[in-house]
């Protein structure tokens, strides 16, 4: 059974139908990369999966549990996932370490000392251990985004959602973040990545999904979708990026 299965997902904002009927499967340990033009619904998919948006129709199951069921505890579902946003969304009033250990301490009731160890380990992992006591706004964008990734990973989420995490970064800072994601990938973290970084999609993705017109246009291994797209829309989209 897939870890995540999306069936017939529909989401509209007012009259604007962003997702018409979207199907998507993510296996355990798989890295799925969503690509597509701006406004195609990449972020909306992630936000629906994280229950930040209420779906208009369709079903999303996480490990067999229908998480779109209103009877499901949304907080408990979110605690099983991590999400990283384009604009980092770190809490400016907390230190870097406190950002990372807020959820372990407050949600998962991990003893503070244990959480601290775990938080410092995560920060070491993202190469920012020496910044543990700093405030987020004293960090560069790339550093902030790596802290955000550490924050989302500290609870060992079953699924990591990454929403255009490099879009707000200066080009020379993008590399650090992408390297970090690639290393998470090697550790077998299941992730869904919405991105415009075709290089990352090519090197790291198991599956590339091209979204347009409110649904999946084409899906497959990066070698197929990116190098030999079958659909005209995919071809046109990729041609524009070259």
């Amino acid at each position: 059974m897939s870890l995540l299965a999306v069936r017939g997902l529909r989401k509209a904002f007012g009259d604007h139908v962003v997702l018409r009927s979207l199907d998507l499967d993510v296996e355990r340990g798989e890295c799925v990369v969503l690509i597509g033009p701006s406004g195609c619904g990449k972020s909306t998919v992630l936000r629906c999966v994280n229950l930040l948006e209420r779906v208009d129709d369709g079903v999303i199951t996480l490990d067999g549990l229908d998480i779109t069921d209103p009877r499901v505890d949304a907080d408990a579902v979110r605690a099983r996932m991590g999400i990283v946003f384009q604009s980092y969304n770190l809490f400016p009033h907390l230190t870097v370490l406190d950002n990372v250990i807020l959820a372990p301490v407050r949600v998962h009731r991990v003893p503070r000392e244990v959480a601290r160890e775990r938080g410092l380990e995560m920060l070491r992992r993202v190469g920012l251990e020496e910044k543990a006591g700093a405030r987020p706004d004293s960090l560069s964008g790339g550093q902030q985004q790596r802290v955000a990734i550490a924050r989302s990973m500290v609870n060992d989420p079953e699924l990591l959602l990454l929403d255009e995490v490099t879009s707000a970064l200066d080009p020379e800072l993008v590399g650090d973040v992408l390297d970090l994601l690639a290393s998470l990938r090697r550790d077998g973290v299941t992730m869904i990545v919405a991105t415009h970084e075709m290089g990352f999609a090519r090197d790291v993705a198991d599956t590339v999904v091209f979204l347009d017109g409110g649904g999946v246009v084409e899906t497959g291994p990066p070698a197929h979708v990116l190098e030999h797209p079958r659909h005209e829309r995919t071809q046109r989209f990729l041609a524009r990026l070259r």
């Binding site: 033009p37 701006s38 406004g39 195609c40 347009d212 649904g215 659909h231 046109r236 524009r240």
Partner: peptide, 30 residues
Amino acid sequence: GTPPEHDGDGHGDPLAENLAAGASSAHVDE
């Protein structure tokens, strides 16, 4: 409300229209 980009089909449909119109290309699955 960031300005929608064109999807590259040349005649400059705003993306929003394309989405609402369910993709004008015949190659789309649905």
